[in-house]
Design a binder for these strands. Structure first.
Lengths: 204, 204
DNA sequence: CGGAAAGTGTCAGTGACTGTCAATCATTGC
DNA sequence: GCAATGATTGACAGTCACTGACACTTTCCG
């Protein structure tokens, strides 16, 4: 009894993929702002109206993958040992990203997306908005965890800042490796080691 | 020979203030998305076209103050002793905000603005976009400082993460105090103390 | 006084996005 | 096979943010 025809979800995803591929091609070629929704729809062979049935906005085409990646991060964080220092749990919840970026093909693709996002202030802002919400849900998760297992940080403000700090490391490392050809994982580890809060005890 | 009639700048600011006041009133009453630019323009008694001569976008009306606040933060950071640990310099560059929020009238006003911003995903995203750019310029500033005075952090990635972490504290504290009636300054100090990176040496 | 500069209103247009409606297409029950 | 049903779609019209062009007025300054 999954909400609304479970089988349909597959073809919906397939159409979304077709749209996303066509759109990204256009974005790379002409830039995000310079590409109209009409052009994307035409490239896929559908009406503009139908485009908006698969994506709530033009932004969504680019940011959709981020949504799913966010769910992965949440799952990873939840799977961590509950008494591990938050900082280390957060570092490990970034593993899906590290793994993604270890594949050269994926890396180049993500780099192209990153360039597109950073080239449009509007898109960049939307991207940061998503990240912010994700951070909110991750810190809620850690708050829950601390309530169930003693020893964790229980101050929601500190917790929110902690998650924000970890994401600041992630962002900084990603942005750096998007430009310089430095390997991502050591760059992230170095940054998170330097930024480890005094609070986060090293042993457990 | 100041660019384009320096005296005019005064009246321009005055008009902007009138628009901003009228707009905020409408935003509080009806919400940001539900208020059209036409309504704002009508409330001030000007054409829509003229509204866009004073503000580049509807977002700008709300985020304009942030821009000037950002310049204040930059100035404060630059004025700090160059060998002070970055974390402390950043904390002190937040002083203008602390001072602003110590006035009860201003605090209530800013709280209203904060509610407006957080109620609209579009506005919130734009707000985060501004913050991101501000963080970029602050970390450039610290990078410069480290180049001139030995002892500071010279890795641009770590530096960027450091600034991001400090802003995460700021954001967390601001958001918390926007809801709970906790006093802002101790909340910020507590959070930044808990988040102080191991790198940032306490003494200098 | 005369002419440049600055500010404004009007109008037309683009592009993102939404609501509505009728047509189509696949599925299901008979 | 066939009709009812529900999902998917295109066509069309409309809203709203935002932009460019042009004409008009006011202000400033020699």
């Amino acid at each position: 009894m999954s909400a609304g025809g479970g089988l349909r979800e597959v073809s919906r995803r397939a159409v979304q993929s077709r749209i996303a591929r066509a759109a990204e091609e256009l974005f790379v070629a002409k830039g995000f702002e310079e590409t109209t929704v009409d052009e994307i729809a035409a490239a896929v062979g559908m009406s503009q109206r139908s485009f908006f049935r698969y994506f709530a906005s033009k932004d969504e085409v680019v940011l959709d993958r981020l949504e799913r990646l966010g769910e992965e991060l949440s799952a990873r964080l939840e799977a961590r040992p509950p008494r591990e220092p938050e900082w280390d749990s957060l570092r490990h919840s970034f593993d899906p990203i590290v793994e993604r970026l270890s594949d050269p093909v994926v890396r180049e693709h993500d780099r192209a997306l990153q360039r597109i996002v950073h080239a449009s202030p509007r898109l960049l802002a939307a991207y940061l908005g998503r990240l912010d919400r994700l951070q909110g849900s991750l810190s809620d998760l850690l708050l829950d965890r601390a309530a169930r297992h003693p020893g964790g940080e229980t101050d929601p403000v500190v917790l929110r800042a902690l998650v924000g700090g970890a994401f600041a490391c992630l962002q900084a490392a990603m942005q750096h490796c998007g430009v310089e050809p430095e390997v991502f994982e050591p760059c992230l580890d170095r940054t998170m080691a330097a930024m480890r809060p005094v609070t986060a005890s090293a042993a457990w």
